[in-house]
Amino acid sequence: MAKKSRTGGGTPATVALDKAGVPYTLHSYVHDPSSQLSYGEEAAAALGTDPGRVFKTLVAEVDGALTVAVVPVSGSLDLKALAAAAGGKRAAMADPAAAERTTGYVRGGISPLGQRKALPTVVDATALSHPTVFVSAGRRGLEVELAPTALLALTAAATAPLLRPVTRV
């Protein structure tokens, strides 16, 4: 995987990747503010990529402590599974303003990489079934593709099944 050239200093996520010497590829697309899709679904569609390989970064509170969950955009986070994986009892989605302030990124562009304050991170175990995965590169319209093992190493993440079971009606 080769790095794509960019101008400027990049985002904190790409700076962290460069500093660690991790191979990655940047993928950009034009974010449509009027899109009815979630940020992650929009990224998968714009890049023509399987939504199971595009991961969203969600910030939750586990027993009051901010924790990052990285799950495929094709699924929904199971908060009970996150709490268990993080060694806690209860989890709830974090206040968006607290997530932005703590990570240094805006909603829809929160990356698990290069956060202002490194938070405990859990990556859904399905990431390991792909040679590469996509995560936000730190702004809307910019994704970074990298090996899931590199994502785990750089974020000191644990892996666990984090997806809510599909209910059939």
Score class of each variant (00 low, 15 high):
40 G>W: 10
40 G>D: 13
40 G>Q: 11
41 E>C: 02
42 E>P: 09
42 E>K: 12
42 E>D: 14
44 A>G: 11
45 A>V: 14
45 A>C: 03
45 A>Y: 07
46 A>N: 10
47 L>I: 09
47 L>C: 09
48 G>D: 12
49 T>E: 15
49 T>P: 00
50 D>N: 15
51 P>R: 06
51 P>F: 10
51 P>L: 11
52 G>N: 14
54 V>H: 05
55 F>C: 05
56 K>T: 06
56 K>F: 03
57 T>D: 07
58 L>E: 13
58 L>Q: 13
59 V>S: 07
59 V>M: 08
59 V>D: 04
61 E>K: 14
61 E>L: 14
61 E>W: 01
62 V>R: 01
63 D>V: 10
64 G>C: 08
65 A>D: 10
65 A>S: 13
68 V>T: 12
68 V>W: 02
69 A>P: 05
69 A>G: 14
70 V>I: 07
71 V>A: 06
74 S>A: 15
75 G>T: 12
75 G>I: 00
76 S>P: 00
77 L>T: 02
77 L>M: 07
79 L>E: 13
79 L>W: 04
81 A>H: 01
81 A>V: 00
81 A>E: 01
85 A>T: 01
86 A>H: 01
86 A>F: 02
87 G>W: 07
88 G>R: 03
89 K>H: 14
90 R>M: 03
91 A>T: 13
91 A>C: 15
94 A>H: 04
95 D>S: 09
96 P>C: 10
98 A>Q: 14
98 A>F: 03
101 R>T: 13
103 T>Y: 10
103 T>K: 05
104 G>Y: 05
104 G>A: 07
104 G>E: 08
107 R>Q: 13
108 G>N: 12
108 G>Q: 11
109 G>R: 06
110 I>W: 01
113 L>V: 12
113 L>S: 05
113 L>C: 09
114 G>A: 06
116 R>D: 07
118 A>H: 03
120 P>D: 14
121 T>G: 08
122 V>I: 15
123 V>R: 06
126 T>N: 01
127 A>H: 00
128 L>F: 00
128 L>T: 04
128 L>H: 00
129 S>R: 15
130 H>Q: 13
130 H>Y: 15
131 P>V: 01
133 V>N: 02
134 F>Q: 06
136 S>K: 07
137 A>W: 06
138 G>L: 06
138 G>R: 01
138 G>M: 05
